[in-house]
Design a protein around this nucleic acid. Structure first.
Length: 647
RNA sequence: GCCGCAGUAGCUCAGUGGUAGAGCGCGUCAUUGGUAAUGACGAGGUCGAGAGUCCGAUUCUCUCCUGUGGCACCA
């Protein structure tokens, strides 16, 4: 038979030959390092038989494509090690992840951290044993017998979930085996030493909280120890830019247990927050939005009417009846608002709206409370009290397309200004269970998807994942470490205007129902602050930096000059502080550099005499001596928020 | 909410069945210096909260709280 190779050449092999035979035919040295075969674009075991005319590539350690399979094989080795060491363990699943693998086990007694070292040592032993991975195909009955015999109830349950027309394959390695689709490396030795067990975690069987909890062991796995240490180093770097750590070190905010999930903003952190908010407000006004402010605490009846009570009451903060005054037991039941939209509909409903009022764009920096599960809280990223850059656009169905384009344009501008250029858009269309007629969905989906494309955004289709009340676009941005953050969203809603009785008078003189577009760009200010801190590793661009310049004196003799410099900087609108402490200049430089202050303004006798300043920028060791006014105009230029530039 | 881990000075952490220690930070004093740590001295702790075992608990046990890594959740 004839096999085509990646370089366009072809090779004649005997019938029944496999990838290994091909590798050996090409060269004995290739056969030694061959790990997997990519047959017609699908990665397969090396010993998978080839067919005539197949396009085949032999994969070796050099190919990144082996990584998922290397990791998956490593997961099997983990599972074998665990079953060797612990008698009372059932195996379940163990897939590859983005940087490694995990395996979920069932065991009455949980694993503890100290078990990991022992397990890892056993894994190295299994690698050293260098057993072949051997695939075989079993019948359902054979498999179930095996599960019965070995007490593997979870695997047995899974047998029933494998499509009837699919082969049920098992992979052996030495004495051990697992039911698995494969493919795998030729032998356990091929996994090498580039792996490490990372952490223990709980996970539910089949991802469902109603099912038994399994014990998950995470590992990371790479092609060699060099790649492994590079990855571990990257993790250390990521830890250094953790916003919780930087928030403390830079004195931006803190959290404490009496207010779990709510932020104490310190002066510097609140400055960042305010600068962001001022910027967002300005951009929104440019974008044709009107800003409003609505109540935090509303009668329970209101939430019942809006439909939130039924759906979200578990996660709402509620004041039960009588709680408003503990002494007298007076007061109706209330709840803190978990979102702003119903309140915005209330404003829309005041007075009679005409089609001439549409589209009506109503924005609020809406402070919301959601009683998030305790295990979900995480620094600024997941909190219980937060403020959204929320807005609702009331419009006609015909206006959806244009409003979407306007929104995408605004969003792109804002992300760019904050320093994010890699934006991914997910378009989610009608779910199975939904409200509204198909005709309206047709129109909304077409409008959204066309508008997304028109705005020139990267576009991924996410079928069936829309909200029950309408299709949506989600905007995911990628930060400096390549992590993804879903921040922006645009959701069509045909339901809430109806539930809460919003309408307008059309050109025909009749009442019509507006469509509501729920939209946010940064999502929550709290979370976005966290994202910014991590994206910039604390080194915020000048316009966002809480303190933009620090005037540092060389010695006491320069105090008076420093005070006049500080005053000039303040007058120029630069957020500036001064450090006239009795310390050496090196000490001050170090301290304010660690505080990530963008411009250090050093003044001593020389500067005082010539009316100049020595500027040292964060991240550089150079000093630039400039006349005071020139320094100010240079820094001011950079410190100008994006919406005020070029005007 | 579930599973693992953790909670000791402002921060990072050590430590012990007989009520505690370091470094940094903070304060005072000396030093007046030229770009990432000047020196000396000093203050600072209900060892997360509650209960139990014990003559005695920060240490052992239990419960709770909070944090943390996951899972589930995320309008």
């Amino acid at each position: 038979m004839d096999i085509k190779l990646p370089d366009g050449s072809s090779r004649a092999l005997n019938d029944g030959a496999n990838g290994y035979d091909l590798a050996r035919d090409i060269s004995p040295s290739l056969a030694k390092v061959a790990l997997l075969a990519e047959i017609d674009g699908t990665v397969c075991d090396l010993n998978t038989p080839l067919h005539d005319g197949a396009q085949v590539a032999i994969l070796t350690r050099k190919d990144e494509a082996i990584l998922p399979h290397l990791r998956h094989s490593c997961a099997h080795i983990l599972a074998e090690a665990v079953q060797r060491l612990f008698g009372d363990v059932q195996i379940t699943f163990g897939p590859a992840t983005e940087t490694g693998f995990y395996y979920d086990f069932y065991r009455e007694t949980p694993f503890v951290q100290d078990d990991l070292a022992q397990i890892e040592a056993e894994m190295h032993r299994i690698v050293a044993e260098n057993s072949n991975f051997r695939r075989s195909v079993w019948t359902r009955a054979q498999m179930l017998d095996w599960c019965q015999e070995h007490g593997e109830t979870f695997k047995a349950e899974h047998v029933g979930n494998i499509p009837a027309d699919e082969d049920l394959s098992v992979y052996h390695q030495g004495e051990w085996m697992d039911m698995c689709r494969g493919p795998h490396l030729p032998n356990t030795g091929a996994v090498g030493k580039g792996f490490k067990l990372m952490k223990l975690a709980g996970a539910y069987w089949r991802g469902d909280a109603n099912n038994p909890q399994l014990q998950r062991i995470y590992g990371t796995c790479w092609r060699d120890t060099k790649e492994l240490s590079a990855h571990l180093h990257m993790l250390e770097e990521a830890e250094k830019r953790d916003h919780r750590r930087l928030g403390r070190e830079m004195n931006l905010f803190h959290l404490q247990e009496e207010a779990a999930g709510s932020v104490f903003w310190h002066p510097r952190g609140w400055t960042l927050y305010r600068v962001m908010q001022d910027y967002m407000r300005a951009r929104q006004i440019e974008g044709g939005y009107q800003e409003v402010k609505t109540p935090q605490l509303l009668d329970r009846v209101f939430w019942e009417k809006s439909g939130h009570w039924d759906k979200y009451r578990e996660d709402m903060f509620v004041l039960p009846e009588g709680a408003s005054n503990e002494d007298t037991g007076e007061g109706k039941a209330h709840a803190l608002k978990p979102m702003n939209c119903p309140c915005h509909v209330m404003i829309f409903r005041q007075g009679i709206k005409s089609y001439r009022d549409l589209p009506l764009r109503m924005a609020e920096f809406g402070s919301c409370h959601r009683n998030e599960a305790s295990g979900a809280l995480h620094g600024l990223m997941r909190v219980r009290a937060f403020t959204q850059d929320d807005a609702h656009i009331f419009c006609t169905p015909e206006q959806i397309a244009e409003e979407t384009v306007r929104f995408c344009t605004l969003l792109q501008q804002i992300y760019q200004d904050f320093g994010f250029s890699d934006i991914q858009v997910l378009f989610s269309d009608r779910p199975k269970v939904r409200a509204g007629s198909d005709a309206v969905w047709d129109q909304a989906e077409a409008a959204l998807s066309a508008a997304g494309k028109a705005a020139g955004l990267d576009f991924t289709h996410n079928p069936g994942d829309g909200a029950f009340y309408g299709p949506k676009l989600d905007f995911v941005l990628r930060d400096a470490l390549g992590r993804e953050w879903q921040c922006g969203t645009l959701q069509c809603d045909f339901v809430l205007p109806e539930r809460l009785g919003a309408n307008y008078i059309g050109a025909d003189g009749a009442e019509h129902r507006p469509v509501m577009l729920h939209r946010a760009i940064i999502g929550s200010f709290e979370r976005f602050c966290g994202v910014l801190i991590e994206h910039y590793a604390g080194k915020l661009p000048m316009w966002l930096a809480p303190v933009q310049a620090m005037v540092c004196t060389i010695s006491e003799g320069a105090d008076a000059y420093a005070a006049s410099v500080l005053e000039r900087f303040h007058k120029a609108g630069l957020r500036t502080e001064s450090d006239i402490r009795n310390q050496k200049i090196g000490y001050k430089i170090r301290e304010h550099s660690l505080q990530k202050i963008p411009a250090l303004v050093v003044v001593g006798a020389k500067e005082a005499e010539t009316g100049s300043v020595a500027i040292r920028r964060l991240g550089s060791t150079e000093q630039h001596i400039l006349p005071l006014e020139e320094a100010i105009s240079t820094l001011c230029l950079e410190a100008t928020p994006p919406h005020l530039r070029n005007i």
